[in-house]
Write a protein that binds this DNA or RNA. Structure first.
Lengths: 203, 203
DNA sequence: CGGCGCATCGTACTCAAGGACAGGGAGACG
DNA sequence: CGTCTCCCTGTCCTTGAGTACGATGCGCCG
């Protein structure tokens, strides 16, 4: 048998019967409790509704993840739980009542060492990162600033000195100061530190 | 045949031969150019090195993605390209010379309507989101700082002047400078702006 | 054409910041 | 007791930042 033992960890007999069909692909064993997971198991499908399930921040999760590839199955999936599960060390997160084809695919992917999250979560991740990865796309703070002023403000807020900015924009330090003064005036801040806090959403 | 037609889009004959083995699973057809993709195709594996490949920001990508599930295969994968590919509408991003098992898995996942990215990118996404979702809780930056130094650093990072901090803590401005100098030294930053960026998780 | 916004540059000034250098007092620890 | 760390304070000095006067050139618009 090339496939590793698959532990089906659920307290729910109905769910267990449903998951039982996975036995066609993996040798399976049932576990009723979290702390009763077989020691040597390498792959597990874990019901989020297990009665003795530790919180996702619990240190037992990462310890367990060292030797066990876990798929966290929730009957009511949501982003926060999914992120928590992945961060806790789980390799997959899916709907507990997903189709057998879907579950098989998830387990396949996880067994091969990859991570699996649904497209909903992945999309949200991408949008979040997309959001976070482009500070130049100013949301509100740049209102009323000219294009040049925004450039200068952006750089100043990232810690560049006036001389740095001048060199980068190929203008004089004097001009940088001029733009910055306008920025301070328009944004109602006193110095570049306050500017940085505003630009980055602190205060 | 339950599997849809798989378009192998690459200009590279070597890569095409390698991918050809996917024909055991999907009916395949070769395309040499991006604008020569068959009209009715539903699934495509696209070489990032295609000569006429549009930039990832090109509007042709989302249009194409409407009817075609694309896996973007790069011979030198990196996060930025991966994110760009997914955002452009591709359903998968992987190494062009990944193993056939891996490619099959990716295509399986994508064919079923899910998104696929490697664990490296996914991990990075998670860390990025993890980072972005908790700006107030900065646990790591204060490592090695004494209690007093942390107080001063915290206030300085929020934009308080040395005089402000001195008044607030009922000490001399000189002492504030002393603590701050120690903070700068320990954290490897040059001034309070850099400190603020570090404390608040920017840079 | 004249006014206006924008970007650019000059000099001079004030001031907070930060470093260099030097020290005192309180508590912990072997 | 000696040593160590932490907290506190002092003076002197250099420098970047920010402001206060100023100025020119360009494009747009009524």
């Amino acid at each position: 048998m090339t496939h590793p033992l698959l532990v089906l960890a659920t307290h729910d007999d109905h769910l267990a019967r449903r998951w039982h069909a996975l036995g066609e692909r993996w040798p399976i064993v049932r576990a009723n409790r979290f702390d009763a997971l077989p020691a040597g198991a390498r792959l597990a499908l874990i019901d989020a509704a297990l009665p003795d399930l530790p919180a996702l921040g619990d240190p037992r999760w990462p310890r367990l993840a060292a030797g066990l590839r876990m798929v966290f199955a929730s009957s009511r999936p949501n982003d926060a739980e999914g992120l928590g599960a992945i961060e806790a060390g789980c390799s997959g997160y899916c709907h507990a009542f997903a189709s057998l084809e879907q579950l098989t695919q998830v387990l396949d992917v996880v067994e091969s060492g990859e991570l699996w999250v649904g497209r909903a979560i992945l999309n949200r991740l991408l949008r979040a990162v997309d959001h976070a990865s482009k500070p130049p796309a100013a949301p509100g703070w740049a209102a009323g600033l000219t294009e040049r002023e925004q450039e200068v403000a952006q750089r100043a807020a990232l810690g560049e000195s006036n001389a740095d900015i001048a060199t980068a924009l190929d203008i004089t330090e004097r001009t940088v100061k001029s733009h910055l003064s306008a920025v301070f005036e328009k944004m109602g801040v006193a110095d570049r530190l306050q500017l940085a806090l505003r630009v980055h959403g602190i205060k």
